[in-house]
Design a protein around this nucleic acid. Structure first.
Lengths: 285, 285
DNA sequence: ACTTTCCATACCCGCACGGTATCGCTGCTT
DNA sequence: AAGCAGCGATACCGTGCGGGTATGGAAAGT
């Protein structure tokens, strides 16, 4: 049975996303007729209708929706394959670790130091990215990432838990809750919360948050309050206070990497990170 | 940047597996020269050497090994995409569940009964397969599978634990250990163990095991002994006995399905299975 | 009913993929 | 050392398919 081709899947996802052959063709840098043909051909080959052409309106069929989702994973896998292969081929081997600035729970320096003493340790390149960090992993642009559960989608990734933290509410010292020794989620009703990039449109319509400094600044300006892992306390500005949120789900900082990763350097890094985290947790609480 | 094509990856995996252009070409149903060209083109496009042509010998480079692994996941994803799309397009919606005969811990009948009472339940098609059950899932041939941790590789799958069991040693009643009330792994030194299909060549060189009846038969014939989940006791022949293995890692029976699965029917099935397992475990131990 | 919009069809062209023939290197053989 | 055999690379050629232009035809808006 003749296999699907990447080109066809690219075409199909374009059409499925635009729901408009003309725009999809423009986006693909081609003209509309060959695109129509390609989709028809794909439908014929699969023996399944993917789109409902309603004269004016184009809609996905059930099967089309399935193929759209599947296509994305295939295309991700394909571009990751290219990127990882290129990286393996080029000389200068490095470990690319993507982090959220301020989101390392204070563990990162110790981990990096410990790792550099490992035999065969590679230089570690840090990439800071506030949102979309999982994407970088899935696309093969990075070797590992520091993520948070349950905040991030971990499907397709292997993980190593590093640090489980309770969460604190961060607010200006003048805030009505600033005097409390503890709060619970109900106390936050009506408070504007930050809108994280990538997260589907939340309660707040304010600006997207792109970095921790910006977030703390906005909090200081009384534009919002934020619920963050307690290790944030080490980095708080003087004009902000943090109090525990009793019923907020604990957050786990973890190291994530693509499934099936085989690099021994990455394995050593994971081992080191787990060891450092275990040690810290052991007497740090 | 021009993307990789499925055809190229198929070609490359053929060559990488055969390490011989001629044989690879034959396997692909084509002649050798276009294959050589395609690989060269792939290397040029990636800017990376994938194969070392040592006059007589063809070997994978580091990058080639990476691409081989990545290619397999891409090709799996692609064929799964085709299969799932076709299944979504055809009428008759069913849930395909792949099981190991005798490997259901006795839960399956209750799960199936409970599921059929769910609103919108689909007919469930059972597929029995002793080995390679994960593959069926990854290839999109099945919707869910009953697997065991740690026996199976669960990467790329989402899972729901159903039942954790201790393991027992199954042997003929005349076996030297048959009188014991418990054994430990050290007692098994030198005993021939079954060779499971898919598992990389183990200690035993006997025939591969393809079904539970066969295995028990071989055990009865004193050809081997087996360490199995304790629920196997319900299905033991009269001439066999089972005693707990104290230090064998407990086995967890779980339901696994492909990541990103969205079918509501599957979701209902998972929910039902979890509920049934929870109830059973609650008073069953 | 006329227009507009947009997908499908018809037709043509160029390229890239696959085939045949052959070269050239390498390692074994005697 | 020379001959040979195995095997990948190169050269060259034909054709099928992917992509382009022009146009048809159905549906929605006015």
């Amino acid at each position: 049975m003749e296999s699907l081709e990447v080109r066809e899947l690219v075409y199909f996802t374009a059409v499925a996303e635009e729901l408009h052959f003309g725009r999809a063709a423009a986006r693909l840098g081609m003209t509309q007729p060959p695109l129509s043909r390609a989709i028809q051909q794909l439908e014929r080959r699969l023996g399944v209708a993917l789109l409902e052409r309603g004269g004016r309106r184009v809609a996905l069929t059930e099967a089309g929706a399935v193929l759209l989702r599947e296509s994305r994973t295939v295309l991700d896998a394909a571009s990751a394959a290219a990127r990882r292969t290129r990286r393996a081929g080029r000389g200068d081997p490095r470990l690319v670790l993507v982090i959220k600035p301020g989101g390392d729970g204070g563990l990162l320096p110790a981990i990096l130091d410990a790792y550099q003493t490992e035999p065969g340790a590679l230089p570690v390149e840090l990439v800071c990215s506030f949102g979309e960090r999982e994407i970088l992993l899935r696309e093969g642009r990075a070797d590992a990432a520091l993520l948070h559960r349950p905040h991030h989608d971990l499907t397709g990734l292997d993980t190593q838990d590093l640090l489980t933290e309770t969460q604190v509410l961060v607010m200006p010292s003048s805030h009505r809750l600033a005097g409390r020794t503890r709060v619970c989620l109900n106390d936050l009703a009506g408070e504007p919360l930050p809108r994280w990039p990538g997260a589907s449109e939340g309660r707040s319509h304010g600006p997207e948050i792109h970095d921790l400094g910006q977030l703390l600044h906005l909090v200081a300006l009384r534009r919002m309050v934020a619920v963050l892992p307690s290790s944030i306390r080490d980095q708080l500005r003087d004009d902000l206070v943090a109090v525990p949120v009793d019923d907020a789900e604990p957050t786990t900082l973890l190291l994530a990497w693509p499934e099936h990763a085989t690099s021994p350097a990455l394995a050593a890094f994971i081992r080191t990170a787990a060891a450092v985290a275990g040690k810290t947790t052991a007497h740090g609480g």
